[in-house]
């Protein structure tokens, strides 16, 4: 197979850049996971299974389960909220549709760290929400809103909801709502029509929304770090901790390998679905 020169010239810059700064680094993660760790964050010579063996530590299965569960609940909540919003947007006149879309997007042009910080202050023990809940007896004197998995999920939903709304709206916009009337005329109850006609009609949007929320959630780090507690840390936090606090790069790399495999799993499922 002969590749022509102009094609090579156009492909080379991005191809080489990505090879050097994405593929080589990911390969290095897998290599360093099999190196021995030296003190002070250095990496030893030769090969060692220590880092990989450390994955057998009993703390990891629960960490992994928690990571998947928090990601799952966040995705589910995002879908539950994004579906009605996307439906509403798709049924609005175009002028209002554009206005509401802009309203949905604007808050997310503020800095991510600052948005999480805003929530940290809202959920703070002396914040208005905690005071109100305490005064009506829904929150005990010593209970806290911050520092648990619920806080992590709320703030994650806040962060990822627009990314779920947009693809579902894009699919709903193309959906022919007359099909729902047809289903009703044929005797379907509203919920049945919604489930059997609308949901399959916007399927591609739903799949995109799920992937776009679930995959980055698996690698979540900032949100559990800022609003979570010790019992709501995720895989990403452990990687950062091994890296920056314990200075054990091989163990951080081994955990990163685990995360890579976890991320690839839903993508492989999607590929299977595409070929089916």
């Amino acid at each position: 197979m002969k590749i022509r020169k102009p094609e090579l010239l156009a492909t080379a810059p991005s191809f080489l850049w990505l090879a050097l700064f994405v593929f080589v680094p990911v390969a290095i993660i897998f290599a360093i996971a099999f190196r021995p760790a030296l003190p002070a964050g250095r990496i030893g010579e030769g090969w060692s299974m220590d880092a990989m063996r450390s994955l057998k530590d009993p703390i990891y299965p629960s960490l992994l389960l928690r990571t998947v569960l928090i990601s799952f609940f966040t995705t589910a909540l995002c879908l539950a909220l994004a579906l009605p919003v996307a439906w509403h947007l798709a049924r609005l006149p175009p002028k209002w549709r554009a206005r509401i879309l802009i309203l949905i997007i604007i808050p997310f042009w503020t800095n991510f760290v600052i948005r999480v910080f805003a929530w940290q202050q809202i959920l703070h023990a002396e914040g208005a929400i905690a005071e109100t809940l305490r005064s009506i007896g829904l929150l005990g004197e010593t209970d806290r809103l911050l520092g648990n998995s619920a806080a992590v999920i709320i703030v994650s939903v806040y962060t990822y909801l627009p990314f779920a709304i947009l693809p579902i709206f894009a699919a709903a916009e193309k959906f022919d709502f007359a099909l729902l009337d047809a289903a009703r005329d044929l005797g379907a109850k509203p919920f049945r029509a919604f489930r059997s006609v609308f949901l399959p009609g916007i399927r591609q949007g739903l799949v995109t929304a799920i992937l776009i929320v679930f995959i980055p959630m698996l690698g979540s780090y900032v949100i559990p770090d800022m609003v979570g507690g010790t019992d709501s840390q995720m895989l990403g936090n452990k990687i950062a901790q091994r890296n920056f606090n314990d200075r054990n790069l091989p163990q951080a790399a081994a955990l990163s390998c685990a995360l890579t495999l976890l991320v690839l799993a839903p993508m492989l499922l999607r590929r299977k679905e595409k070929t089916a």
Partner: peptide, 11 residues
């Protein structure tokens, strides 16, 4: 699709 933390760690 690569989570930020993996990109940061690998770089």
């Amino acid at each position: 699709v690569l989570p930020d933390i993996l990109m940061g760690m690998s770089l």
